[in-house]
Design a protein around this nucleic acid. Structure first.
Lengths: 257, 257
DNA sequence: GGGCAGCGTTGACAGGTATCAATGACCTTT
DNA sequence: AAAGGTCATTGATACCTGTCAACGCTGCCC
């Protein structure tokens, strides 16, 4: 299942926001302790309520953060993409499971070693603290999006959040002449779980936005965002900053001539 | 508005989960740097998008973590009670506002001093890291609760979360012979914002639970939880209820011979 | 005391969504 | 090529919730 490669794998820290500003010594120490692990779509990385002996950093692919409810259904509370970190420093028991949504890779830092390095490296301490704080704010962003009563509004919020968060990940986001193409990395059912609704409603609202020419459904999971302003209006929230990022992207990739 | 008292106020760290395990030296250092601040209900502690020069720890009262949307409405993404900490270490700009929901007190640690202490005190580092990680998990709990399609389910989840989280805070939770009495510290409108709905729906669902003898509305803000299991059933899913109706139907239409 | 504002509650109604059921597209398997 | 499965979609219907409106209650101020 899990393929462990030898130690000392070269760490792709360049794409990792959290660890991009570390001193060379700290980075070397991290590289020295890390294991690389591969997962196939559907495999579980961490089980909820079980102790986990490592801190992870996503290298490639998409992971779902989720909880299995009493009735067996699963609720997704977040996604992890490359550069994101997960795991609880100084505390073993995870509250949520982490599953690979696609084939994916992580690098894992053994808990004890990581915590020791954390304690003696102020730069790593700062980086991890910032990463968790940002993750917290992202979780609260989700709360705002989920609080939207209409499904179309949640979808709009989701698409805008994808754009603002994954703007540097080219296999998810691709600016084009007619708009930004978003590749949704999860199924309709997962998206429904993420947005607190059902696949049927996702489909309906998505096609409603399609008919309004706000978006264009190229394929089920390839969405072209045609009218960002309209989308922001549907989301009805102060995602104005996200809108700004979008227009930035468009400007850079559609030089006037 | 904000009443600053002299430095060196004795810190009520005993009630604070986050700081309860600190070494005496670290605790003294915190005590030495802290200011006490008082707020009246409705006052703003931190404005979203503004730099905040301190890290805070709630001493008494309730605070709302919220964001003001473009259309003027405010959405609450969490509550803070005594012992909870807030503020972004190593990072100035807050993403959400913090407002006093009741008259309340905090103690504030100047950012620079706090960060310096954080860097040289592994025990404080550990405590803060744990606090943020827990806060993150709590935010994700909220996501689970909010993803419930029916309002009654969200209210049930909210009440259960209150019970598990405020177990030791006796002016909010009071166990009695007939059940647990919960004092809801916020208005119906705030509760509606918190659960992503409207005050009218809150009222209706609450009274529906009242009529089902699951809870007892002593006063608008004083709820007696009579049947915890039933409440958990409502929170966990309506699918169980649906399943029950289904089995009822089956029983009626296919009587055991 | 009377008037007033804020809050919680209740009613009526329209609209949105969950649910059940069925279809078609795509992929894998045989 | 045929068969089976998964997934996305669409349709019909019942239910829930948002919305607008009105009412009673409390506390406050004049």
């Amino acid at each position: 299942m899990t393929k462990k490669t030898h130690k000392g794998v070269r760490l792709a820290l360049s794409g990792s926001m959290a660890f991009s500003q570390l001193r060379p010594e700290t980075r070397d120490a991290l590289n020295a302790m890390c294991h690389s692990k591969s997962y196939r779509a559907g495999q579980t990385v961490i089980h909820a309520q079980e102790k986990c002996d490592f801190i992870g950093c996503v290298q490639s692919g998409i992971f779902r953060i989720q909880r299995t409810l009493a009735d067996g259904r699963e609720h997704i509370v977040g996604l992890l993409v490359e550069g994101d970190t997960f795991g609880r420093a100084f505390d073993g028991a995870a509250e949520f499971s982490i599953e690979a949504a696609t084939d994916a890779e992580i690098c894992a830092f053994p808990r004890a070693e990581f915590e020791a390095l954390l304690t003696r490296s102020p730069d790593l301490e700062r980086a991890v603290m910032l990463a968790i704080t940002n993750e917290l704010d992202r979780a609260r962003e989700w709360l705002i999006i989920l609080s939207n009563q209409k499904i179309a509004g949640r979808i709009a919020g989701f698409l805008l959040l994808m754009c603002s968060r994954f703007r540097d990940i080219d296999h998810i986001l691709q600016p084009g002449p007619q708009g930004i193409e978003v590749k949704i990395p999860i199924s309709r059912a997962d998206l429904a779980h993420l947005l607190g609704t059902r696949p049927e409603s996702i489909s309906r609202s998505l096609h409603a936005l399609n008919d309004q020419r706000v978006i264009d459904i190229l394929e089920p999971n390839r969405i072209l965002i045609r009218d960002t302003k309209a989308l922001a209006r549907v989301a009805d929230e102060d995602e104005i900053e996200a809108l700004a990022t979008l227009q930035d992207l468009l400007k850079n990739h559609r030089p006037a001539h």
